[in-house]
């Protein structure tokens, strides 16, 4: 399949058809609301959408299932015809220029050479990726309940499109942990050591935001577990 915009021997006819379909209400109902009954070709099957990014979704459907009479397909996005695709090189078709983090629904209709249309395929719905990363989390604070533990907490980050999925904690520029909430416990620290923490947010589309400013934490010294030496020279004296 190839996009119909590619120059070809029948391009003028197809462009006219596209213009007609796009400029006017659909000539007959997409969902059986009138129009001639669909005989040939068979309705397309196996329509799938693969999100390629914030503005692109790749559509594919079963090859050759439109029936032997199929000559080309119309692709509809949210009920509007957006492309004509030949049935001569079926490798799918990519919808471009979409809005980020937006849900779209596509379906496909097969046409034969006499422009008789099939029933519409089952629709497929997909949401484009979020195009912008989240903001940084709010101020990070730390406490050290004991020499072997650092407890971090931070303010929420913001992502108006896909929302915040999780937070990633970096210690000394190395990823140390993840949290779905606003706190995280580091139980792999040593006493009397300095550690630098930064936190970043990951949004619902997997994009990472900026890290927070570094927060330096000094753990308390190790507890004193060594007893004194025993007293010596114990003797009894007069009161």
């Amino acid at each position: 399949m190839t996009r119909r915009e590619r120059p070809g021997p029948n391009s003028s006819r197809r462009l006219l058809l596209v213009a007609a379909i796009c400029a006017t209400p659909l000539p007959f109902g997409l969902h059986g609301d009138g129009g001639p009954p669909a005989f040939d070709p068979d309705r397309p099957t196996g329509l799938q959408a693969e999100v390629l990014g914030p503005s692109e979704v790749r559509l594919s459907w079963d090859e050759g299932k439109g029936g032997s009479e199929t000559d080309f397909y119309f692709v509809y996005r949210d009920g509007e015809a957006i492309a004509v695709v030949d049935d001569d090189d079926n490798d799918g078709w990519t919808d471009r220029g979409l809005q980020p983090w937006t849900e779209y629904t596509w379906h496909v209709v097969a046409f034969d050479s006499r422009w008789r249309r099939s029933d519409p395929s089952d629709p497929v719905t997909a949401r484009t990726d979020d195009g912008t990363p989240p903001g940084p989390p709010g101020m990070v604070t730390a406490s050290t309940p004991d020499p072997f533990t650092v407890e971090l907490s931070w303010g929420p980050a913001d992502d108006p499109e896909s929302g915040i999925d999780r937070y990633v904690v970096h210690r000394d520029d190395e990823k140390k942990g993840e949290s779905e909430g606003l706190s995280w416990r580091d139980e792999s620290v040593e006493p009397d050591e300095e550690y630098t923490y930064r936190v970043r947010a990951i949004n619902g589309s997997g994009l990472a935001g900026d890290k927070t400013d570094p927060l330096v934490v000094l753990t308390p010294p190790a507890p004193d577990t060594t007893p004194p030496a025993a007293p010596i020279g114990l003797r009894v004296v007069r009161p």
């Binding site: 004193d224 060594t226 004194p228 030496a229 007293p231 010596i232 020279g233 114990l234 004296v237």
Partner: peptide, 20 residues
Amino acid sequence: SVQLRWLPPETDAEGQPLGD
């Protein structure tokens, strides 16, 4: 009653100077 007297340790059990 009994009164006792002794010498305090000057190191900890590992021989380090005792300051606490």
